[in-house]
Amino acid sequence: MLEVRGLTVRLGGFSLEDLSLKVRAGEYFVLLGPSGVGKTVLLEAIAGLIQADEGGILWSGRDLTADPPERRRFAMVYQDYALFPHMDAAANIGYGLGARGVPRRAASDRVIKTARRLGIETLLSRKVGQLSGGERQRVALARALVTEPRALLLDEPLSALDEVFRAQLRGELKRIQQESGAAFLHVTHDQEEAMALGDRIGVMLDGGLRQVGTPEELFHRPTDREVVRFLGMRNVLAARYEREGVCSSCGMEIQAAGAEPSTRHVWVRPEEVLLSLKPFDSSARNQLAGRVVEWRQSGSLLEVCLAAGSLELTALITYASFKELGLTAGQEVYATFKISAVHCF
């Protein structure tokens, strides 16, 4: 288990104060927070690249704080992958093995084995410049995994990729983590990424780590208002898989393209929910009847809370629409949203 105990780092105008955190062996832990709160600094302090002013880093109870990075065995994967441009993919992947004195033959076997696991064995002789973004990411992962680190420290590993690709590699990242059995500590500002990947999520806001928990705990029992505001998340619904493309939540069927047997939650952004007084025909596949419970200001918009049976749903609409619809408490309304607006996790 990786333990960060009372870590304080002061760097010029920036500081991390008294931060504590535990990542279990084999766990996928996601640190979620806006940019500029020191997530990268925390990773680099754990790796030993930045010195702690106070506090320490422990692995299974053993204090590593005085150890240099090369003895901590926490492999770093940066956002831009930081591959060595003067080496080919194989030499990049094998770099850590050479550094740890693994004999050449054994090292080359391990490089090939790891590359095969990540599906990049055909890329081994390529130069770094000849690799696409996704391929670079896999090479960077292979380079870290091949050294069998205690933990992998990933700094925004998906944000350099374009969106279509990101979703695909996200799933793969999870698979790789489960197969390798290593602890992953993954830093991101992307909530969807955090929800999809994290066994547990730590929310980091200005001033440190605010809440740690499973995605479920985080969204159902947020501990403070800033976490809620940062997550900005309404409409995270506990859900059950029913059949291909359909989930249910509180007895209501919800059509969702991404529904899988492993689905535990669905999430609909409040801005994706349309309100109407009568049901209407449209291409949107989800339409629930409910009643207005309450409403409140949210920036220049209004958050309208509905109850559809025991299911609670929030819609974000303009003040003008609110007036035009003439909404009042207890009024019957229909909430409509598209299949593509339903995120499953």
Binding site: E44, A47, L49, P69, Y95, A99, R100, T147
Partner: peptide, 8 residues
């Protein structure tokens, strides 16, 4: 930095 974390 990466090289250091890989054991160099």
């Amino acid at each position: 930095r990466v090289a250091r974390t890989l054991g160099a």
